[in-house]
Design a binder for these strands. Structure first.
Lengths: 293, 293
DNA sequence: TTTTATGATAATATTTTGTTATTACAAAAC
DNA sequence: GTTTTGTAATAACAAAATATTATCATAAAA
């Protein structure tokens, strides 16, 4: 750690080139100035001034340190000024969503970001439990999860829901799905795959009592925009949120199997209850509420 | 000024969320931690933590201060690492030249700069006396002047010379220049204009004893690349270094009047004698020596 | 050469900072 | 609920860091 006061003394000395004058400026005595410089040089283990009688020039290290000092003083000045002021269009905004939602929301976010050059957007695609972890450790400030949580620390607000769709290759259009058929087609798994499949099965009894876990798994991808590729090629079926399916380019190669009881997962905008958020998040919250209805 | 130690304590506290643990990490006692936070809050006149029983969340100010602390720690880390190391391809290089030389050298400098993205080049075009002032006040590290100086502080090296040319509109080609003719054409002045004209006159007796200062002045420009415009349009004559004249687009509109005794001003690369320069200047010094021969 | 001004060093005084002891109170355990 | 335990805040005191005065050495100016 570089001592603040020593550094200021050094900076002033460089600017005045005069020990006594520096002392006067900083309301200290001349020996104090000498000592500060000595201490800096001792700590950094390198001379900062090349002495030429009572004059001096800066060594390379001295020049570097001076630039650092100027820089630092400036940053600090800035902080002190900004401390009280909450700029709605600058700073970092950090979010964590499911892969599907990240893919859906991110384009809207970046088009907003492009209007405000000091605004930085950070979106992490992660499974529910990681989203919660990120929120609690302040890695992100806003997350969207599909579960209602009972943590006192977190605050939740339902902002919409995801309709789950059973997606098969196009050639199965019109056919009624049951355990035997699904098993024949085979399942393309993904991070939320089995969870979604279970939910759909619970409401629609697709498997007629048989364990969903027994369905043959034909593949696994964790890149959200690649899950539908094998399905489109006829390799297997999967379960995904409607929003994700819609974004797929070749929807004509897909078949959305009709369900007797449509299943939707609720979406909860989640943040820390006691952590005040800067103004810059307001637009994003509003946008999320609008887009996910 | 924000106290270093307090800030580190704050940063650690934010990261651990635990006063006692922070104290242990920093080899201090728990009350010390409390006091540091208090002192910061008192100095910044704003609460940093929102206390919730024994837990806490950061206020907006706290969040800002934390980001600042992280940032600062990183910068400092970097400084300490770089302190001893002199990178020849990063940092700022600051020069002061006459307008003519600036125009001539700058293109070479920027094409070098474009190869090294961490290298910044700063060139100031200034008259001789300002160049010297800038050198002495460390505003620039290298300058080129046309005079030999006797300051003990400065170190000079002759790197070349500027051939001065008497430039008239093209229609005077072949004519012999004398006071009457020059006075009829009229002088286009610039920062070094009269100085150059005097030098040429001293060696060539163009004015046959009459005062150069009495020649009619038809204009004045201080943008080096605009001085020749009025000359090209037939409005007046001027005196400029050969290098500047060569760079002019429409040289066919100009006439270089032959001189019995060619006049050249010496060019001295000038820098502070006792100020060590970083390695990154080496390329530039070499380049200057090569280009100005 | 003499005088004056400036920076370095040593010893001392002051201020700052951190510690121990104690209190208050929230969270956990019963 | 009540008790216990763990954690942070406060006050008084001890230690350390820091600055000051006095003095010396020497460069710059006269």
């Amino acid at each position: 750690m570089i001592n603040e006061k020593w550094l200021l003394t050094f900076k002033t000395l460089v600017e005045t080139k005069h020990f006594t004058l520096t002392a006067e400026k900083l309301n200290m005595t001349q020996p104090g100035v000498s000592q500060h410089i000595q201490k800096l040089e001792r700590q950094l283990k390198t001379p900062l001034l090349q002495r030429l009688g009572k004059q001096f020039e800066l060594t390379l290290a001295g020049q570097k340190l001076y630039r650092f000092a100027v820089n630092k003083a400036q940053l600090q000045q800035q902080l002190l000024q900004e401390m009280q002021f909450d700029d709605p269009f600058s700073g970092e905004c950090r979010f964590a969503f499911s892969g599907a939602l990240a893919m859906f929301l991110y384009p809207h976010f970046i088009s907003y970001q492009s209007l405000h050059e000091n605004l930085n957007v950070f979106v992490e695609a992660a499974p529910n439990n990681n989203i919660i972890k990120d929120l609690l450790s302040d890695k992100v400030d806003i997350g969207i999860v599909t579960q209602r949580l009972d943590s006192e620390q977190l605050q939740q607000e339902k902002v919409g829901s995801e309709l789950l769709q059973l997606v098969t290759p196009a050639r199965y259009e019109g056919e009624t799905m049951n355990f035997a058929l699904l098993n024949k087609i085979g399942f393309i798994n993904h991070p939320d795959g089995l969870h979604f499949l279970n939910k759909i099965n619970n409401s629609n009894a697709l498997c007629q009592g048989k364990q969903v876990e027994n369905i043959a798994i034909r593949g696994y991808v964790n890149q959200i925009n690649q899950i539908l590729l094998p399905v489109a090629q006829g390799i297997g079926f999967t379960v995904l949120p409607e929003r994700t399916v819609k974004q797929f380019q070749q929807t004509q190669l897909l078949n959305i199997a009709p369900l007797d009881n449509p299943v939707a997962e609720p979406l909860f905008l989640t943040k820390k209850r006691y952590r005040p958020l800067p103004l810059r998040y307001e637009w994003f919250e509003k946008q999320i509420r609008t887009l996910l209805v």
